[in-house]
Design a protein around this nucleic acid. Structure first.
Lengths: 236, 236
DNA sequence: TAACATGCATGATTTTTGTCATGTTTTTAA
DNA sequence: TTAAAAACATGACAAAAATCATGCATGTTA
């Protein structure tokens, strides 16, 4: 069980330099601090559900969250992985629609909720923050377009390698410097890669046989990152 | 050869009610009108190239444009199809990066160019327009996420059917009410679906045999839209 | 702790999709 | 108008990936 600090103020929040909100003017940060609601979600709990209406945005203080989307046949597709400092729920809110994805905690996670009206009013009165939001949306759009291209053009072996690198970029390693600091099921990895669970299991075994990773249940160690990058066949 | 009207003012532009810019305040529209540069691109010509720096945004007055992205192996992936009233080039500009995709005219197309500085300054001073941009970005992000899920989960047959419906939604029919009013090569359709050209050709032939479409070179007629929707296996 | 459920792993098989080869048609340009 | 190139079409084959089946391991709960 993870332990969190007592609810903090936005001014002293661990994420005050990493979140988009850090770009807001001081007066608005004060207001957000007064109106925010802090909550802890246990592993597996849902922050919000695909299909329901947004009442505000969520800012992750500490923890890990997956954002996933149900395909037309009811299969989960993981769209994004989120960590401390990340904001979520803004897309549906800005385009005035229901949530198009569900947010589920991957481990115990502390989250601040900022009500819709406040978020919109701050955005209206703080051009800097509005620009940051546009930048954030643009970056997400870019990532989505790249992922889309890879899904269309790359074989699963390359996409799995890429996904492992992506997980590492997002959540980093544990203290040992090699173990990915998140526990995902094989099915979740498959839903991130966009393939069948069995294919993921098989390829992970191959990666292990090739000495690129080490597997111990849900613990995954990246032994040879360079080879993994090569396997992912990435440009840049 | 398509014929266009003489360069018009933004105030009398055919797209003045459909583009995002119609939400801008009157004073800014005047300014945009003064600084915009109108241009005609012939079929196949490039508006901008992946990898180069943006100097402004483009607003399509009349015509059709594809936005495409090169995969790591150099294969084209068509990200978006654009028509009159659509704006493009804003993503790279807002996130301060190079273009991540190329824009190429699918037919003779009239385009207005709005310089970067003007676009940014209007955005800074017109909250309404900024919100429209956020909404636009949110909508694009949503579409990208849905497409991503379909690429990951749906077989090519379903994706091709969906793509034909998407082309119809975007560009509509010719006067006869059945012929798609855009001419795309089989390869372009394949690059939209995310598959090999041969697979696209084969499946189009099947669709024809099933009586869903009629093929006459690049002319595609949608004969049984309901069946096509069923084939696409869409939710909603 | 036993019984059950769930997740992981692997083999066998089928289906889907891509690739290669070849011929035809259509476009383009000389 | 003709020659060349590009696009379209189709068959044969190979490769990739999904599905089905089964067994083992792990974890959960009565």
């Amino acid at each position: 069980m993870t332990h969190f600090h007592d609810p903090t103020t936005c001014q002293s929040c661990a994420q005050r330099f990493t979140s988009v909100f850090c770009k807001a003017k001081q007066e608005f940060i004060t207001e957000i601090n007064e109106q925010k609601i802090c909550n802890i979600y246990k592993k597996g709990q849902t922050l919000f559900n695909e299909g329901s209406y947004p009442f505000g945005v969520y800012c992750i203080n500490d923890g890990k969250v997956k954002l996933s989307h149900l395909g037309d046949d009811g299969k989960e597709q993981i769209i994004r992985l989120l960590r401390g400092g990340d904001v979520l729920g803004y897309r549906a809110l800005l385009s005035g629609e229901r949530y198009s994805a569900s947010a589920i905690a991957l481990e115990d996670t502390q989250v601040c909720f900022i009500p819709k009206e406040l978020f919109i009013s701050v955005l209206k009165n703080d051009t800097g923050l509005a620009f940051e939001m546009m930048k954030l949306l643009s970056d997400e759009l870019h990532k989505a377009e790249v992922k889309l291209t890879h899904l269309a053009q790359k074989p699963i072996r390359e996409r799995l390698a890429e996904t492992l690198l992506f997980i590492k970029e997002t959540y980093g390693f544990e203290a040992d410097g090699v173990t990915l600091s998140v526990r995902l099921s094989r099915e979740e990895i498959a839903n991130l890669v966009g393939t069948a669970t069995e294919s993921t299991i098989r390829l992970l075994s191959e990666f292990k046989k090739d000495g690129m990773v080490e597997l111990d249940g849900k613990k995954i160690k990246i032994l040879r990152q360079k080879e993994l990058i090569k396997t992912a066949n990435l440009q840049d």
